[in-house]
Design a protein around this nucleic acid. Structure first.
Lengths: 213, 213
DNA sequence: CTAACTGAACTGACCGGTCAGTTCAAATAG
DNA sequence: CTATTTGAACTGACCGGTCAGTTCAGTTAG
């Protein structure tokens, strides 16, 4: 990607997008869908811009009109996916209910998300730990809010139940987060016979083990 | 797998090693080390054979002499890594000890492995769920034995403690497996301050939640 | 003892092909 | 009229895989 000296028109489209709500968003959405699919399959490096454009039913030039670069497209894809996932997780936040039941439902929502957007999950797993990565800033920025949602749910449990003080919240967040992604992807890829409830139950064991007996 | 040029000699490494001391295996090992590093960083598609050869201090042709193709190299890399991981996990199998303590140590071994071979962990996470993948047969073949080791440890716990029958062994295996990889990688990449004990404790919560109160 | 020979290991230039990125004139649509 | 899209052309870099040739430890023959 190097220096993109004359990436002139596209960055301005960012601001203009709000003013002109025409087909731009529809095109962007098609591009998001197609990219998600292809990048999930072939990987970020393996999916070509030509393929993405073709899959979206759009010309290559349109990709560069809507996004400044392939890198940009992927960064926005990451943001888009995280937005969806967070809103799903937040949709079950219910202050009145039992925090453990809320956590159960939250994990269920995560399973649904993984089933619906496995390509996003694959993309995240593929790229998030890449050490010099083009999107490491993006990941650094998105990790916090995402893990924060899980952290808040854990906090709610800890506020109502006695929990093991030897277990750090951060490590627990990560363990649950990781279990959700891996169990969700594994179900999709290798064990379609496993039910949502089964997967949730296995991941919930970690919360039940966190609460002291 | 085609015909790997060295395939004639390599399988009988025991016998061949006597006749051809050293160099072959040394070169392959250097290639393994360099590939693991580079592929972990840039991904399987992103790492070039030229880079790998240069990093190993060897010419490109040597890569193709020792391995039939880039794909072959990666498949063998996967096998090599799994061999190491399984042997580490098996090293703590202690029939006489408490199964929960054995599981604790096994997870600790997994953490050590992730700290030592983060590139292998990244490679696994990147490629194992890729749907048409060049290595899907390899993954299919390696998953069983690997998860089986964890499964046996779970079985040992279930044999000695009362456990939640609603939780399937398969899903539990996957959840622990996933938590180990993600917690291990996250520690390496984003939270080096987290201790091994902390990480193990968080993952062990899943086992403690599996045992009924 | 040594010259000739063998073949596994290794080299690196080279080839055919692909890709990301860029540009632009023309078409399209609100 | 203006924002958006098209589609093709082009470039410059890069990449996987090939192959003719080199090296050299060890074997054989004289």
């Amino acid at each position: 990607m190097r220096t993109t000296p004359s990436a002139a028109a596209a960055p301005d489209a960012e601001a203009a997008k709000k003013l002109r709500p025409g087909r731009t968003n529809a095109t962007k959405q098609k591009l998001f869908d197609a990219s998600m699919e292809l990048i999930g399959e072939r990987g970020a490096a393996g999916a070509t811009v030509d393929e993405i454009a073709a899959a979206a039913g759009v010309s290559k030039g349109t990709v560069y009109y809507n996004f400044g670069s392939k890198s940009d497209l992927i960064a926005q894809l990451l943001r888009h996916g995280v937005d969806i996932l967070i809103s799903r997780l937040l949709s079950v936040t219910d202050e009145s209910a039992d925090p453990l039941a809320a956590m159960d439902e939250m994990i269920g929502q995560a399973m649904d998300f993984m089933a619906e957007y496995p390509s996003f999950a694959r993309l995240w797993m593929s790229e998030s730990w890449r050490t010099p990565s083009e999107w490491q800033d993006t990941f650094a920025e998105l990790r916090g809010p995402l893990l924060g949602v899980i952290g808040a749910a854990i906090e709610a449990v800890a506020a109502k139940y006695p929990v093991d003080p030897a277990i750090s919240r951060g490590s627990l967040e990560t363990a649950i987060f990781g279990a959700c992604f891996v169990v969700g992807l594994d179900r999709k890829t290798y064990h379609p016979e496993r039910t949502r409830a089964q997967s949730v139950a296995a991941i919930m064991a970690i919360m039940r083990g966190y609460v002291v007996k």
